[in-house]
Design a protein around this nucleic acid. Structure first.
Length: 286
DNA sequence: AACCGCGACAACCGCTCCCTT
DNA sequence: TAAGGGAGCGGTTGTCGCGGT
């Protein structure tokens, strides 16, 4: 709409990526890194727009990605973080190493949203739905609480957050003043019928405290050597399922064994392919 | 066996933010 | 300081697979 497309649409391929394209992209990025995404497709010999390449890499091909459904802990974390941050998926994703904003967003829309509604919690405001109905009737709000309203409220929701600490730094500093959603992990999936306590003094959980404390520290979520170990089960037990698409790509991934150990590909992390593939192997991905 | 509906998720679109000049 | 361009973000759509009828 009055804005130039991010790339020349002519000759630019769209739709699902093929294994061949993935291979080209990964080969290029692992060997050269990316100076600017717009140049990547041309240099990598792809007929894709740079944006598409970036998305494919960050959401799917990045070696430090954790695959599979979010586990209970991660899910609860997402809920808690969403209560504080709203639909700031990238910020939420930054707190979950190995997870992408897109992945979390999808999971939220397909799983968590419904789960919360089922539990009688408004997934937008994290308030008990019944309470909101009462509030609305008192305020003579014209709209009902349906999904449409929720989506329309997105801006209001943002404003809610803006009324709270506006910047992330401020937000982090003030987070203790906010009313967190009670994250009773033990009852998360069991007490679906009862809205969770909004009592801030319950002080949720050590996990949230830990998370927010960690926020003040430098974010090293994407320290590849650390996250890879964690995510691929080298230091902890992870039980990620193997998707068909992963299997689809596993064969060519083996090609990267040609790289030496501990290589820095200019991506901000060292790519230890042996460790990477060992980890994949441990998960049965190869 | 065929059809249909639904869930899951990959990918696209357009807007905003931020950096550079 | 303003303008332009690139990158990032969030919302939405398209497609595929699976289960039920």
């Amino acid at each position: 709409m009055g804005r130039q497309p991010c790339c020349d649409k002519l000759g630019v391929k769209k739709g699902p990526w093929t294994a061949e394209e993935d291979k080209k992209l990964v080969t290029f990025l692992l060997t050269h890194g990316h100076c600017c995404w717009r140049a990547v497709p041309k240099l990598a010999g792809l007929r894709r727009c740079g944006k598409s390449c970036r998305l494919r890499w960050t959401n799917y091909l990045r070696p430090d990605l954790k695959r599979g459904l979010l586990n209970e802990t991660e899910e609860q974390l997402v809920i808690d973080l969403h209560a504080h941050l709203g639909n700031r998926w990238s910020k939420i994703a930054a707190r979950l190493p190995g997870r992408t904003d897109n992945e979390i967003k999808n999971h939220w829309n397909t799983h968590i949203k419904k789960k919360l509604i089922k539990m009688g919690i408004d997934p937008v405001t994290h308030e008990p739905l019944q309470k909101q109905v009462i509030d609305n009737s008192q305020e003579q709000a014209p709209n009902s609480h349906d999904d449409e309203e929720n989506s329309n409220n997105d801006h209001d929701h943002d404003h809610d957050h803006e009324e709270q600490p506006s910047s992330d730094a401020d937000h982090d500093h003030h987070q203790k003043d906010l009313v967190p959603v009670n994250s009773d992990k033990n009852s998360c999936s069991n007490n679906e019928s009862s809205p969770r306590s909004m009592d801030p003094s319950s002080d949720d959980d050590l996990l949230m405290s830990y998370m927010w404390a960690e926020t003040l520290l430098e974010d090293n979520s994407w320290d590849f050597m650390v996250t890879t170990r964690d995510q691929f089960g080298l230091s902890s037990s992870s039980t990620c399922s193997t998707s068909s698409s992963e299997e689809k790509h596993s064969s060519w991934l083996m090609d990267y064994q040609v790289f030496g150990d501990d290589q820095d590909f200019g991506l901000g992390f060292n790519f230890n392919e042996r460790e990477f593939f060992n980890a994949l192997d441990m998960e049965g991905k190869l």
